[in-house]
Simulated scan of single mutants.
Amino acid sequence: MSEHATVQAVTFGLGDEVFAVSVTLVREILDYAPAFRVPNGPGWLLGLTDVRGQGVPTVDLRVRLGLTPAEPTLSTRVLIVDVPLADRTVSLGLVVDRVLAVTTFAAERLESAPDIGMRWRSDYIEGVVREPEGFVVVINVAEIFSRDDIDATALAAAA
């Protein structure tokens, strides 16, 4: 990696925790609106969100990461992300408590996730960045929504 390599990410909050996802995955950020419910989906699947005529499966990222569900507020947003898979790209809406910023940090600041002391599966985490206010957890969206999960979401969306 070059000494000047940087990572651009959208940072967002879930409760007191700060997370980030690569800006290259984020297509847009929408104000929260209730999703159109889809029957028989996994508990974290809220339903479909209409994004310019396309039904995008929308998930409660808090629930998917094992956090306590929370009622939407005026700060709640939906990140529309394009998740690259081996054979295609899947669009998902991620409901987050609040979007904080688009930020850039030096790639060498990205530390590997500790094996213990984190409440999320380590394969969900690309790494952590130490900031004065605490850690920013950089998530791997493709791992959080593994192929089986995305196939289940796609099937539920098609129902």
Results as ranks from 00 to 15, higher is better:
L48Y: 01
V18W: 00
I139V: 15
T104F: 01
E131A: 14
L65F: 01
T6W: 03
A154I: 15
F19I: 06
L110C: 04
T6I: 12
A113L: 05
R77A: 03
D50S: 11
A106Y: 02
L100C: 08
G41V: 05
V96E: 08
I139Y: 02
T76K: 09
D123N: 07
A142F: 11
V26P: 08
T6S: 13
S22K: 10
D148S: 10
G41C: 01
L65D: 01
V7Q: 03
L85N: 14
T76A: 07
V51E: 00
A35N: 07
G41P: 13
V138N: 12
A113N: 00
N140L: 02
L45V: 03
L110I: 11
F36P: 01
G127A: 13
Y124S: 02
A101C: 11
P114D: 04
G55H: 08
D97A: 07
V136N: 02
P69Y: 00
F105S: 05
S122T: 15
F135R: 09
R109V: 02
P132W: 10
V63A: 09
R88A: 10
T153R: 08
G93A: 03
F145R: 04
T58A: 00
V138I: 15
T89C: 03
V90C: 10
D115W: 00
T103G: 05
L14Y: 11
V10Q: 01
T11V: 06
V21D: 10
T73W: 06
R109E: 10
E126I: 09
P72N: 13
G55T: 12
V10W: 00
V102S: 09
V83F: 02
V102G: 06
D87R: 09
F145P: 06
L100K: 13
V21R: 08
V18K: 10
A158E: 13
A70V: 15
L79W: 14
G15A: 13
V138T: 15
A20C: 06
R109N: 12
F105E: 06
E133D: 06
A5H: 14
V95G: 05
V26M: 06
L92F: 13
A70W: 07
L46S: 14
P39I: 11
A107T: 03
F145L: 08
V38S: 00
V141D: 02
S146I: 02
T11A: 05
T103K: 12
V78E: 04
I125N: 01
R98S: 14
A154P: 05
E3H: 11
T153E: 04
A33Q: 15
E143I: 01
E143W: 01
T153V: 14
V99C: 09
P114K: 06
E17G: 07
G117N: 07
R119N: 01
L155S: 15
A9W: 12
S91C: 14
A86F: 05
F12I: 10
V10E: 00
A106V: 08
T73M: 05
P34D: 14
Q8P: 10
A9I: 12
G41H: 11
Q54W: 00
V138F: 07
S22Q: 13
V18G: 01
D50C: 02
F19K: 03
I80M: 06
P72I: 04
A113C: 03
V23G: 04
L94A: 08
N140Q: 11
G66V: 11
R119T: 07
L25H: 10
L110P: 04
V81M: 08
V99W: 15
I150H: 04
E111D: 10
V26L: 10
T11S: 13
M1E: 15
F19W: 06
W44V: 02
V56E: 07
R37K: 11
